[in-house]
Design a protein around this nucleic acid. Sequence first.
RNA 1: GCCGGGAUAGCUCAGCUGGUCAGAGCGUCGGAAUCAUAAUCCGCAGGUCGGGGGUUCAAGUCCCCCUCCCGGUACCA
Length: 671
Amino acid sequence: MKDKKNKYLVTSALPYANGHLHIGHIAGAYLPADIYVRYRKLKNDDIIFICGSDEHGTAIEMSAIKEGVTPKEIIDNYHFSNKKAFEDLGINFDIYSRTSNPIHHDTSQEIFLNLFKKGILIQKKEKQLYSEREKRFLADRYVEGTCPKCGYEEARGDQCEKCGTNLSPLELINPRSKITGDTPVIKESTHYYFPLGKYQTELESWINTRQHWKPNVINYCNGWFKSGLQDRAITRDLDWGVKVPLQGNEGKVIYVWFEAPIGYISATKELFINRKEPEKWKEYWCNPEVKLIHFIGKDNIVFHAIVFPAILKANGDFILPENIPANEFLNLEGGKQSKSKGHGVLVKDIVKEFNPDVIRYTLASNLPENRDTDFYWKDIQTKNNNELAAILGNFINRTVVFAKSKFNNNIPNRYEEYKSDTDIFDYLSLQKNVISKHYDNFRFKDAINETMNCVRAANKYFNDNEPWKEIKNNIHRAETIINNCLQICYSVSILISPFLPFTSEKILKILNAGKKDFYWENTGKIILEADKSLGKNEILFPQINNNEIMQEDLNTTTEQQSESELIDLEYFKKIKLKVAKIIECEKIPNSKKLVKLKIEIGKKTKQLVAGISEYYKPEELLGKLIIVVDNLKKTKLMGIESEGMLLAAKKNGKLTLLTVQKEIESGSEIS
RNA sequence: GCCGGGAUAGCUCAGCUGGUCAGAGCGUCGGAAUCAUAAUCCGCAGGUCGGGGGUUCAAGUCCCCCUCCCGGUACCA
């Protein structure tokens, strides 16, 4: 049993170090991976679990510029925060590295150079927008201008959000940098492309050998094949990233989507350097016996199933993924979680409130394995109280309390005459195999459900054998029953440890048992010696009451106010609020709720378009004193210019204008 | 717009290549028990499988149309 059997190399998607992790990420790529790895370790497989922060790219550089800090500060912040979040949740990587490490730069450059030397990369010249003032090329998303199709003035360089047209930044009329607002010039730039198209046939036949993959992954790939793979630029004009290792390419970096997955390799190298076996990484990455498994969310499928394998193939020497069990998304209270919209439950926050195992269980028992699933705060409470406490916690507790009060906190004897009473152990041994099969097939929800069935059976065993009665009639039998229950506790501790690692440890402590026999195969076996004393008992899952849950619920359903959303006074002062008097007012024809207002702000007048005609008739607005934002950018609504915005309170279909409590001249400032 | 994926018991979810597939967990209800965090165990619950049409001896399971969600749409990472 001590022999290492299979070799696995497991990776979880590298989190982008530009935001905090939320529970959707955890349910997608990290928790399943951690469960899988823990399970394999219990089976004594040779497995390493790799992850790290993805720290390059435009978005991070732009965040740095916006916040007036260096990219390094941004990535340090999120790298360490996310690393800790993983630790708090018990996601146990063998290494959590980062792509800013030198070893990653070296590895990426090496692979890039190798492809270059093999003559695989293609150079293409292209015209791009360049900001003279910032001395940089502008990424498409960071250019805005007037849409050539619909005339919308704030279209982005990649797409017009108004009419939905896909754009190239060169098509924009009056393009300007989104960061500084200055006008860019067109400049030529040479980029290296990876000829993904050339690998299509090869990739297709490879994926055809992967019919055991989840259908969602295969479907997704087929979609890409159908529309045909295109060459992909793998360099960018950017400062922040892995430098292109060729002369004459100053100011260019390797595109993050090229280098980030290579992070899996560099992190593995780093792991074995730390372990003082610097060459050993090859025993994984260059060994066809090893099963490489990428855990990711569905948004990452194309890169892990198509782009990265193509790169690995092109480079040679490396193994390709054996499986990519991509998950769908976990929604929050029915709505999508998103970093940018601030709608999401951050790991760093939730671990402060709840037992990490309760979080793990809640997420794991509802993983988005086949489709998007929903997370509700209430689930935390329900799963804790009705499943973890009631079934699991209760079984451990009733057993241990019984031993403590009736047998002086010792493990009672098993008596020869009752040793044939082994149905429950047979069942556990059988279940062990059933559960294994589920894990092997990446069906974690089923695995967990079957595991809980074991605990249910344990409770049933306790109930059916009524030790509380037997202790009065037949002490030997009562002792044997409790001994059995304690043995079952040990088995349970093994079975739950992939998804409830902290609880598993606690149970061992309560049993006063070591890890010498802590292997999957020992499930259903008699491990604990009689007469040994037990440890200190502990309530594993205290009840979670309504208040605790309602508080969290409130925090998310009302707008979340994380520290990053707080503004300082200076920022607020930028908004010029003034009192204005409505001097003209008419409804805009054909609009549902727009009115055109002429307002007086002190000595000047302005035209406003406001969406209030469902609530106010034009004539009742005349002469009213209202509050307006005076320094808002002009915009056009239904072709009519609006030079500001009025303030109104709105809730549940009711709307009321803000006004002043006493008469005051228009143009008065508000502070 | 185009491509793809969803819509199954009160809730959250399983249902592979069409024929015990109408399921699980939780909740509800009834019963048993009282060692245990009022925790357990047993039993029950009748959901036109989003709507409509079609193929078939037979369809949540295949085809078409409709409604409602959600992703992707290739240089945002």
